[in-house]
Amino acid sequence: MDFLKWGRSPWGEDILIRISWDLLYLSAIGGVLFLIGHALYVRFWPQPVPEKGDAATTAALAARIPERVARHSVAARAFHWVMAAAMFVLLFSAFLPIVGVKFAWVTIHWIAGVILTLSIIYHTVHATFWLDFWSIWPEKGDIEDSRRRMLRGVGQSAPAPRKHGKYPLENKLYHLIILITGLAVIGTGVFMMKRVQTPFFTRNPYLFTDQAWGVMYVAHGLAGVGLVALVMAHVYFAIRPEKLWITYSMIFGWIDRGHYLEHHDPQRWNVARPVPPPPPDEDAAKGRRIAV
């Protein structure tokens, strides 16, 4: 299978055009296989029993943890869903025509792309100045935790990993990879808007050399088909019963105390109420301010 599609320039030179759309199917199949594999694994593989913490400490801590632990601000949730909507529009407008559902997709695609770009710019600024910027980035200890978790996941013995901070490593890695692919599609996509008619630019496909454009199209395509698998995985986890509490948090903004205590390390994600405890209603607001 040829992964790259080559064309011929008006000068008879071989130039990269894009990736082969076979890769789309490959990505989709890969995504499906992963889901099936994971589902089977969860269903049939004995799952390690979560570590029980020291009961006394937990109880003491629990007292200081609000009923609802604020996890995502309204702004952050809005961003996520706008981005998700844009992403779905982008993916569908990009790939439906390829699989045979024909419609005028270009305008939809670039408008969604612009929305995605704007929302990401907003998110970057927002996360940098208003959120706990570092909470989403993998850190050194995550790797050791991850190794331990894996070993235990396949039934090997390993020391207990730490609990998660605000975001589990999977989340962090997913964010990282979506960030890379997202930037790749956006970075290339913005330039590609010079190749079609939009109100923003005078159309000029000669902005870069034929070869440079080729690389850009390939990058856009690779990231695009990569996103298919990534989004599939994301949606899959979002609807897995044991993960639904996380999904709800992206809708309602909070997780309950139980899940917090079960999955998160209070040291690494401190949402403990300072003294004296304020009324519950304000907790959330306060918590948001302090901890998000």
Binding site: P10, I17, V106, R195, T202, R203, P205
Partner: peptide
């Protein structure tokens, strides 16, 4: 010329130096 219509990723007829006296004024999509 291997343009969009020929399976490529470019329209040679709508560039800053293109010759497009005969081309579209409506519903151009790439």
């Amino acid at each position: 010329w291997e343009c969009y219509r020929a399976g490529g990723n470019i329209c040679y007829a709508d560039t800053p130096t293109a010759m497009n006296r005969e081309h579209a004024i409506f519903d151009a999509d790439r």
